[in-house]
């Protein structure tokens, strides 16, 4: 069974429909992350947001980046953040006040920033931009291990440093520091 060339009744191409669906889902889930009252639900919406973004990467013809998005963000960072949420849950459940008192100013700033950025990028002529084309995994691999081999190694060292730093920062202090933990609130 083959799909028709365009979406029935609408006349769009399938990629346009996919882009619209993914863009709506991406912004919707991002808003749920930011606006949700319950922080665990925010974390779960963030996983959905990362998954949608992986879909956008696949639509852009970079399957390797999409796979890395799923592995790194959904597989590692989301789990890390969910664990951190569970470690820092206060007994009284989610805080009554989710936002600062100055959240309205932040909202104005974000709306202005978003419209400004969107206007600027859409009104700019990109002279080098050509036709859309997919990126082959082979080309990425050859670049990664020839031109970009030094950044690749540096990233490896950075990840090692981050692991050591994370363990050092998150490990419990020695018992001699215990009296400090009981300072009056």
């Amino acid at each position: 069974m083959t799909l028709p060339q365009t979406v029935p009744f609408l006349g769009w191409s399938w990629n346009d429909l996919l882009f619209l669906v993914l863009a709506t889902a991406l912004l919707g889930t991002a808003l749920m992350v930011v606006l949700g009252r319950n922080i665990i639900r925010s974390g779960l919406w963030m996983i959905a947001c990362f998954a949608t973004l992986a879909g956008v990467y696949a639509l852009l013809g970079t399957p390797l980046v999409a796979a890395a998005q799923v592995l790194v963000y959904i597989g590692a960072i989301s789990v890390l953040i969910l664990f951190a949420i569970m470690l820092t849950q206060t007994k009284g459940g989610p805080a009554a006040l989710v936002f600062h008192h100055q959240a309205w100013a932040a909202a104005i700033a974000a709306v202005v920033l978003g419209t400004l950025l969107a206007l600027v990028v859409t009104s700019t002529e990109w002279p080098l931009a050509g036709e859309y084309a997919a990126t082959s995994v082979r080309a990425i691999a050859q670049l990664l291990f020839s031109d970009y081999v030094l950044p690749f190694e540096i990233v490896g060292v950075l990840l090692l440093a981050a692991v050591i730093g994370g363990v050092f920062l998150a490990k419990r202090d020695e018992p001699r520091d215990e009296p400090h933990g009981e300072r009056p609130e």
């Binding site: 930011v34 600062h100 959240a103 932040a106 920033l113």
Partner: peptide, 14 residues
């Protein structure tokens, strides 16, 4: 737009 949503969250969440 995604960046703006993130900016709002960073500035407004407690």
């Amino acid at each position: 737009l995604l960046f703006a949503v993130g900016t709002f969250g960073f500035l407004a969440r407690r």
